[in-house]
Structure formats: structure tokens, C-alpha cells
Write a protein that binds this DNA or RNA. Structure first.
Lengths: 186, 186, 186, 186
DNA sequence: AATGAATGAGCATTCATTCAT
DNA sequence: TATGAATGAATGCTCATTCAT
């Protein structure tokens, strides 16, 4: 069986990280262990402990990668840069964006939020959370002033949180109106 | 040997909940197990599993109690009921309240937020989170309309989250201004 | 709430036994505990331990009741007594009977066999097993001689066992032929 | 301290299986746990869970080994292959074989039957039971046709079952006569 | 007579980590 | 360099039984 035991496997480390992200997506951070990562990556247990001596090492690597490929961030950038769509204002655009995000891949939404919220208890993750917050705020600041951008991000965060934590439905018109109020009055 | 084994202990359930809150405060939700709760409450392991068949049951009880004894809620009520303080508007009051809360017992703040955020991945906690959200919103609605109250709560949630997750300092004036914008325009 | 706490409940013991049988049917003997019986009977745990001090007491009572209401036994009697059906011989009738039994309520079949086989390791159940064996043999002996009846019962037992233990399909024609060979040659 | 902890122990898996068989022999399947197996094999608990992730895995291995080393099977082969003993026919040989088996190591007989019968409620064991059934039937089929072999095995199973479950004595002459009837009539 | 509370023992299983190869 | 084997600790949870009421 040629190739059955891949002795030289330079991508293995990367594949373990991807597998770890998959595990967190499906079973939460609490479900990430050396074993679950090894199983998801289809590598021996010893391989995960070899490449990531402790679980924290693996978690940090996973978060870093999640940050890089963060879907929401890309979407944010695409939507909030460039000339504004002619027929909708910023508040309506953001409200619609939230609606699309929340009604899309829910597992992905939860994955991103869980990683983000994990910073509450893991100081090591705070720089990553701060980076993400800064990136989103900066993207929004291109369409308004920085202070307003921070307020918008906070409000959007709180709105999403309510949906995700209480199971309440997302009310796009409510969100649009709240975000609109936060904009500077011409 | 009378009294050597306290078979009759009517407050035991309550003491276990308190112990669970202490454990979560000090070691996070991940540190809460039947065993750690039993040790913290100084009761046998079987006692925790008897009163709370699953860990989720214990977590729900803990979150509910945290809500009940939530300092912030009491303060909310005190601040938002009765005639408004003459020399400060609602936005300034809420911004000051957040500042006091965030600069007070930080471990307590993290405890409450961690329990609240845990609902993201634990559906059993969602009804409790929803209750809490509803109670806070209702308290605020007495000073404004319900839709505005929801927007205020979301914004405050998002503002706190940023402080807690990124380590950024709390900017009371920023918060005041954002909350003020959310109020209906006279 | 009238009747909500039924203080005097003379059928409770009986209901617990019925519940125990239901538990064994669904989860096997290994699944029968004071707790599962209490839950199935919708009575407090203390009620099961009160009426049946040990689990064995409950198990014995359950087996006795199963024996009484043994469906297969009734069917056997109905089929093997009275004048023989004109157009089928004894072997064909028994083979058909087995087929009907095995293709009917499989949980019931497994319940009965599990209780029966439990006598292997529980001497207390052997008299019950012996009684059942004797009853079936006696019913068959009315249509042939006792020695042949015992052989028929043994063969039927072995045939069922193969189906139940290996998952092999029941082959009625094979069974009919084997049973026919066991009959005395005219 | 060389040798103080035997990290390298290539036979450990085998010893655990043997220990499991010993446990089942003495305390029944219900008495087989990871812990009892570990204690009987004089290995740490983790060693049993490492080699057999679930109890069913251990049970399957035990049943397979019991089958392999099944004394009866060896005897079967010896008795049923080669030229038939001149002075006894197949039925008499099998009846004698059963008698020897049932009057020999009774704990061993019960061990094997208990493992075999456990397939009734444990689907994981069914393939092993089917293998065993097939092997015995194939051995017998060398002395007669397959259909007759299956009938003989079923009858022998039923005969043994009656002895084991009801405590009735084994009647070799009855058995011989029943098995003889099952043979094809020349 | 009946039962809620209690508890120590035990369960299968998972785990991070170590170690010999 | 890589990994199968190993292990002690811990996990959530179930249990039969006891006991005070």
C-alpha cells in the first residue's frame, strides 16, 4: 500500500490545526482535546502531543488561524468599503448584514463568538479579541467617525448576543432603527 | 453519636448552589464539577448529584441565583424607578452605573458574564438568560419605551463586552454619548 | 388538586411490578433498578424500596407475573390442544407458530427469552424456568408422546436461539423438516 | 529503578482477556467491569480502557477467545473428522459428547453459555455468536449434510439449555434417540 | 405505611501527559 | 522525528441501601 504511512508529512501540523477548528465548531472549546483533534485530523494521538505539547498551544494556534480566515471579517470589509450602495444607508446595510450572518451558517457564527468570548477568562486570547475588535471598528470608521464606529460595533455585538444567548429571533427593523440612532445627526 | 452525621440539613441545596458560584468565580465554569462543588460546600459527592442530577441543573440554579442577587439589577431598579434624579439624564445615569459596576468587584463581574455567556453553547441556560434579559429590559422600559430599552441593553452589553474581552479601559463619556443617541429625540 | 397525592394506593405494588416488566422489556434485566422501576411506575423511589426491599425481590415478582401472562404459553395451548387442524401436521403447525412468534413483537420475544435464560446464572429462577418448560412440554405431549415432546421443545428452543443470537433469518421450511423428523415414524 | 514499572508488556492485552474470562466465570457477565478485569489481570485500570475502549470490546474479545479455546470444539473436531468410529453412529457420539461436556467443568460450561447467550441483548456479540454457530455446524456438516447439521446443532443447543436452565439431569439415551431421528433416513 | 433525603461505592469513560522505542 | 503504549487522575453519573420523619 503505497503512501499508507506518510513518514514525511510537512502539512500535518496544519491539518491538526484545521481539525481543531472543526472540533471547536462542532463541539465547542470544551470539546477540544488532544484526542478529538487527533481523530478529526486522522492522525495518531501522539502526533498531536508531539506538535502541540500542551492543549493551550493547540488552542492558540487554532484561534490564530480562525482569525486569519475569519469569514465575517471579509464580509465586513467587502460591505463597508468602497462607495456606499446608493439606495440604502449605513444602518440599514449593517442591519441586513447581521441578519444574513445570523441566518447563515449558525455553527460558524457560534464558533466565532465562542472563540471571541473565550477571552473573558483567558487573558492570552485578549490580544486576539482586541485585534478583531479593532479591525471591525476600523472598517466601520471609514464610513463614519471612530467614536460612532465603536458605538455601532458595541450595539451590533449586544444585538447578536441577545439573539444567540436567549434564542430570541433577530428583528432587523429594530436593529436598523437602533443603529440609525447611533449615527451622527446631520 | 448524635450530630456526628448531619442527615437532616434543609439548607444543603442552597449551600451547594452558593458553593458552585464560588467555584465558578474562582475557577471558571470549566472548573465546576460535581466534585469541586461538593468540596466547596463541604458535603459528600453524592449530595451534589442527588440535588442536581446533571451539571446543567446545577449551572442553571447557579445562574438563576446570580441573577437574583445581581447587584447590578438592584442598582438598576433603584436608579430607574422613582422620580428621575433631577440633574442627570438617563444616559448619564446608565453610563455611570456601568462604570461603577466594571470598576467594582471584577471577579463578580466576570462570574456573572461567564454564566450569562455560557448560554451560547448550553441551551439549558437560555431560558434563564432570556429571563435576565427580560427583567433588565423591563426595568429600563419604565423610563423609556420597550424598543429603546432593548437597544440600550444591547449597547450596554456590547460596551461591557469590549471592556471585558479586550482589556480596553471603560470610557464613560463615550458610553454616555452613545446611550444618549439611542434615546428617542424630543 | 384532588387526588394528587394518593395516600391509599393498594394497587401500587402491582403497578411497580408491571413497570418492572416494562423496563426489562425495553432495557434488559441489567436495566432494571429500583430507580428505573420507580420512574416507569411513576412512583417515588422510596416506594419501590418499601415494597421490594431488595432488587431480587422485585425481579422475582416480575418473573412470576411474566410467567402468568406469558403470551406464548397461551398461544401454545390454543394451538396444540383440541383436534388437530385437518390440513396440516404437527411439525408444520409448530414451524408456523415459531415463525409467527419470531416475526411478531420482537421486544416481547426477547423479554421472555431473557427471563428464561437468566436462570442459567440465577438458581432462584430455575424453578420458574422448569415450570415453563414442563408446561410447554405437557401441552405438546397431548399431541404426541412425552419423549418426543421434549425433543420437539429442545429443537424449537435451539432453532429460536440461533435466530435470536446470530441474527440469522428464520427458515420455516427447515424448521418444519427438522421437527417432522423428530416425530415418531408411523 | 529498572523493571520497577513494566512499561513494556506485549502480552498485556492477552492477559486482560484471560482475566476477563476468569471474572465472567466466577462472577458472571454482570460482574465484568473494567475495574474487575484490571484487578484480575493485575494491571492498572487505565490499561483495560486503553486496550478495550468499551466493555463490549472486551466482551467480544473474551467470547472470541472462549470460542477459540473451546474444549468442546476441539473435541468436536476430533470426533467428527476422520473415519467414523466403527462401533458407534453419529447420534450416539454426539450424545456422549454432550454428556461429557455437561458433566465436566460446569463453571466452564456456564461461562461459555453465558457469553454465547449474551448476544441476545448485545448486538456486538452477534457476529461472534454467528461465527461460533457456523464453525460448529460446518464441523458437523462434514459427517452429514448442512441442513441436518443445523438441525443437530439446534437440538443439542436446546437439550443443553434445558439441563442448564432447569437443573434437570442430562438423559443421554433420550438425546441419542432425538439426534438419531434428525439424521437422514437411509 | 410511606417517602424525601442522603451517602459511599462503584460505574464506563476520557483525559493530558509520559516514556520507550 | 514520530508514535504506540501506558497510566493515574478525574469526569458525570447511577446505584442499593439507610435513615429520619
Amino acid at each position: 500500500m503505497p503512501g499508507s504511512n506518510r513518514r514525511h508529512d510537512p502539512d500535518r501540523r496544519d491539518r491538526i490545526i484545521d481539525a481543531a477548528l472543526r472540533v471547536v465548531r462542532e463541539r465547542g472549546i470544551a470539546g477540544l482535546t488532544h484526542r478529538t483533534a487527533a481523530a478529526a485530523a486522522d492522525v495518531p494521538l501522539g502526533s498531536t502531543t508531539y506538535h502541540f505539547a500542551t492543549l493551550d498551544d493547540l488552542l492558540v494556534a487554532a484561534l490564530r488561524r480562525a482569525d486569519e480566515s475569519h469569514a465575517a471579517r471579509a464580509v465586513f470589509s467587502a460591505r463597508t468599503t468602497g462607495p456606499p450602495p446608493p439606495d440604502e444607508d449605513l444602518a440599514a446595510g449593517l442591519a441586513r448584514l447581521l441578519g444574513e450572518w445570523l441566518s447563515g451558517d449558525r455553527a460558524g457564527v457560534e464558533l466565532e463568538y465562542e472563540l471571541y468570548l473565550a477571552a473573558l477568562r483567558r487573558p492570552a486570547l485578549r490580544p486576539v479579541a482586541a485585534e478583531w475588535y479593532g479591525a471591525v471598528t476600523a472598517a466601520l470608521a471609514e464610513r463614519t467617525d471612530p467614536r460612532t464606529a465603536r458605538a455601532l460595533v458595541a450595539a451590533m455585538d449586544g444585538i447578536c448576543l441577545r439573539v444567540l444567548l436567549t434564542g430570541a429571533p433577530y428583528e432587523e427593523e429594530d436593529a436598523r432603527q437602533a443603529l440609525a440612532r447611533l449615527l451622527p445627526r446631520g
